[in-house]
Write a protein that binds this DNA or RNA. Structure first.
Lengths: 232, 232
DNA sequence: GAGTGGTCTAGACCACCTC
DNA sequence: AGGTGGTCTAGACCACTCT
């Protein structure tokens, strides 16, 4: 109808997006198949596929074989967070990074951590407590449980290098879960971060596994004023 | 060398991932070009491209024309958060959703919100304050500033439908920023959520624009115990 | 069973960037 | 200037799932 062929899969993605926005294809509607769109846009089906797959990944479209491609009823926003190493996070803010180890003992894993890691009861793991500084100000208190098995023969000095960095360098690309919440500072956290008891802290809890075994569970308590920001 | 051709781009992605994990290709190293890998894996270059592009999107590889493909020095973790409509979030927890409008006035936009939205000083916007309930328990207090221009002729009754849902249905697919933090409950928040002053609250601040204009800025204060969870 | 998206191929051209 | 990834094509087969 309209005429000119679109150039490149991004142009096709934008055109599809436009039609959704102006309700030419309303929420829940099934849009034409890839073959039909390829004809209309004057391109190969693979190019249409690339564009639609991108929009599906963004949560705008829902695609199912045989059923076709539909506009999502409730457009789900997907925000991507980039989780960097603590040192990078501090230095990216233009501040000097510092690190101190507060505790390093082999202890029985508490039930709450056992549950998060899916461990059998009664294991003893390495328990590390440390503080990360930004310009000499406490930035994060880190409370980590570490599977001693993954250390193997290596004997890193966690007084010098943070477990965070050692893990990234030696056990990279592991999978896991991550959770964000807010809690009032407990006694230990208040002490480590130099704030009053009950101060609202931003909490990040991460648990990671390799295919074979649980690796670590860590609770990061960020000092007051911390914001985790991204674009949608 | 090894022999058997790999089947499918996911198998290739996994094989590349394996070589990175076992340090066959260490951090910062340049891996063979697409053409070479296509020969080795016994597939078309496009298939290798698909696999490598996926890993680049995951933050494992870095790709530049002419320079080639390199293993990222610091593997950046990318976590994807799905931001749903409040009603869905509550109902997904198996609880009954409720909503109450506490305030609805046209007021001068405060400086902090002006800054977040990039507005010129002195505008008057719609200011909506509401509470979302889960099983009759206050779940979130919502404090929203809304550009009156985008309402147009529409006159939604924000006493019945939350601004959240109205916006998703009528001004979908806008871009914006999102930030997470933790603060102690102020007087208004404590009252709305039925908690003590200073209770640690999980805060989500979102600001959204269309290509043409700023739409809305909202601050969501979640009640105690809220966790935002995802996988990496 | 049939129609849809998912993927692969072999070849080609191009944009970009490093050398 | 040349090599690399980025993309497109035309065709094909496959996997899934709705009817």
């Amino acid at each position: 109808m309209t005429g000119a062929a679109l150039n490149g899969w991004e142009a096709i993605r934008d055109e599809v997006m436009r039609r959704i926005r102006v309700r030419e294809w309303g929420p829940g509607a099934t849009i034409p198949g890839e073959a039909a769109l390829a004809v209309e846009f004057g391109c190969a089906r693979a190019t249409v596929n690339r564009a639609l797959r991108d929009l599906a990944g963004a949560g705008v479209l829902e695609r199912r074989r045989k059923a076709g491609t539909r506009v999502m009823l409730h457009p789900v926003r997907r925000a991507t967070l980039e989780i960097a190493v603590m040192r990078q996070e501090v230095e990216a803010r233009g501040q000097r990074y510092g690190y101190a180890l507060l505790g390093d003992r082999v202890e029985r894993v508490p039930p709450a951590v056992e549950a998060a890691l899916g461990l059998l009861p009664g294991r003893t793991w390495r328990h590390l407590v440390s503080v990360h500084f930004a310009d000499s100000i406490p930035f994060v208190r880190e409370d980590r449980w570490l599977n001693p098995a993954i250390l193997g023969d290596a004997a890193p000095d966690f007084g010098t290098i943070s477990a965070n960095e050692w893990l990234v360098a030696n056990v990279p690309y592991a999978a896991g879960t991550i959770a964000f919440s807010a809690v009032g500072a407990g006694a230990e956290e208040a002490l480590a971060l130099d704030v009053a008891d009950g101060t609202a802290l931003f909490i990040v809890e991460r648990t990671t596994w390799t295919a074979e075994a649980a690796i670590t569970s860590v609770r990061l308590a960020y000092g007051p004023g911390y914001r985790l920001q991204t674009t949608v």
